[in-house]
Design a protein around this nucleic acid. Sequence first.
DNA 1: CTGAAAGCGCTTACAG
DNA 2: CTGAAAGCGCTTACAG
Lengths: 339, 339
Amino acid sequence: MSRIRSVPTLDDVAKKAGVSTATVSRCLNSPDRVVERTRTRVMRAVNDLGYTPNFGARVMAAKRTFTIGAIIPTMENAIFARGLQAFQEQLHSQGYTLLVSSTSYRPEIEAEQVRSLVARGADGLLLIGYARDAKIYQYLRQREIPTLIAWAFQPGTDQACIGFDNRASMQMLANKVISMGHRDIAVISGVVEGNDRAEGRLQGIIDGARDNGLDPEQIPIIETPYEIENGAKAFDTLMQRETRPTVVMCGNDVLAAGAIRRARELNLSVPDDVSITGFDDIELARILTPTLTTVHVPHREMGRRAAVELVKMVESDNPGLSEQLEISIKLRGSLKSLS
Amino acid sequence: MSRIRSVPTLDDVAKKAGVSTATVSRCLNSPDRVVERTRTRVMRAVNDLGYTPNFGARVMAAKRTFTIGAIIPTMENAIFARGLQAFQEQLHSQGYTLLVSSTSYRPEIEAEQVRSLVARGADGLLLIGYARDAKIYQYLRQREIPTLIAWAFQPGTDQACIGFDNRASMQMLANKVISMGHRDIAVISGVVEGNDRAEGRLQGIIDGARDNGLDPEQIPIIETPYEIENGAKAFDTLMQRETRPTVVMCGNDVLAAGAIRRARELNLSVPDDVSITGFDDIELARILTPTLTTVHVPHREMGRRAAVELVKMVESDNPGLSEQLEISIKLRGSLKSLS
DNA sequence: CTGAAAGCGCTTACAG
DNA sequence: CTGAAAGCGCTTACAG
């Protein structure tokens, strides 16, 4: 029967196998450096004892945790849930475990989360977007923590990132919308403060308007947190203006879903009375009635590649490569051509 | 300027403050056991040096990581994304960090994930549902890892859990559906194998049918993984049967969303031609057209309370209390009364 | 209230 | 290919 003492140690295995602890350690970490006869004897002892290495001791001696930290705004946003799921799966397949923290879209608490994950021994960190206090970057550099930025792509930074150009992508959509005859655009944007992705998307619309000879100053813009309810409220407000927009461009699909719901409640037809667009192409987009015109972002792919790249950075000490992903416009029922 | 040597240690702080390492350690871990004058001097040194404790060393000496592991099917299912988000937030507010792993609904890989999280030093574990190999429970008991089960509630187990009775909840919905005049029920269930929640829900429908004098054998049941697309396909198949059901009860909202989408594509009116119900009440449910009748589950609340309870278990060595949460039926547009 | 010192369980040059 | 031993950076009885 099982002895009173709890978990077996390297020493126990070494004694049982009649070798030194060094040999046991080698069997576990670089088996090819031990001759087969010895190795099988050791592995037998490992199994018999049900030995698993002590985490703390291993971390302390090896100075690695095989753990990667991620700080995201929230898992409740499907884009991060998807991306993080893929990130975790890939990490797991490479022998790493995921440590998760979230800011709930409060950038001011990110610094503390970074410290906390580093203190927990994260070998590397995944962060979302660029916008953050320079002190955070400085801390990360000083502690030499490999860090990868995802969901954004800004050429000309030395910080490794994987993502897409939020601004250019939204501009592309705006151009499309305008080319379909829309001149009265209204915008429901996410909160821009401390969120470069939201800011980029908003700027993209303004860029597109300007490109096409529209006056950006004339575009009504409502800024609100990414919640369905907020999308509904903002839509309400926009529809009460003197000149009704012919299209409401939303900062993401969640806001657009709220707008579509509210349109239905107001007995407004989408897209006959008003067109609505989103951004992200989460599953919701194809289930809404009407289906949502939006910008497709490969969230899973981004998560997966982020894991691959970050592990590479952790294991090789190189600064990491940036990667830009393709996005595409998905034209669906919620956008109508006026021409 | 900064010296070449990297991260400061306890020793550095001790020297700088002119005290022993024991005192520095106490300042950090039980400040009240150090007289104020000493403490301020030490904290000054800590700040000057930018000292943060080495994780591995601390874990090894204290035998605790302040880390909690969770193994869920997938973050892509909104119920787990929500619950896990709340779980993480609560954990964070209590000084713990979340380690995440997922099975992608493949129960056979859970054992390895459990081992991996334990090997990473998880102080406690959150698992979803009861159904799993007895060896896993045995391992957890042997290693004395506090474990809490969520999203399920089974009276009469000694395993701590927090959740609701999936079977009774679905039975309640089935009773409601039948009381509204439906006799031709069809079911789109999640995969039952290795998933006690899915199985409970399916059984609940059968219970409800039997209670009301319907023959459960006559109910067509399609079992399929929780994906929108699968809900659509299953709905298709069900609608091609000789006797069309008047209601399709789905194992969760995701499957129901697929069914509703397919109904639209088939030009079938929901609920005039066929009623559809879901389970979970994710945000989607109120955005679908028509809105979805479903069982409301307090996912956030469950996640939050799970964190509170699990931390209690970790810190007190008690076996943990089970908690049953209230669910409720949400009657919405997708279910029509036939009487 | 504070210090000297053992000990936590590994990994890894360094020898042989 | 294998072993003896130092060392990783903390925490915590045990004294005083």
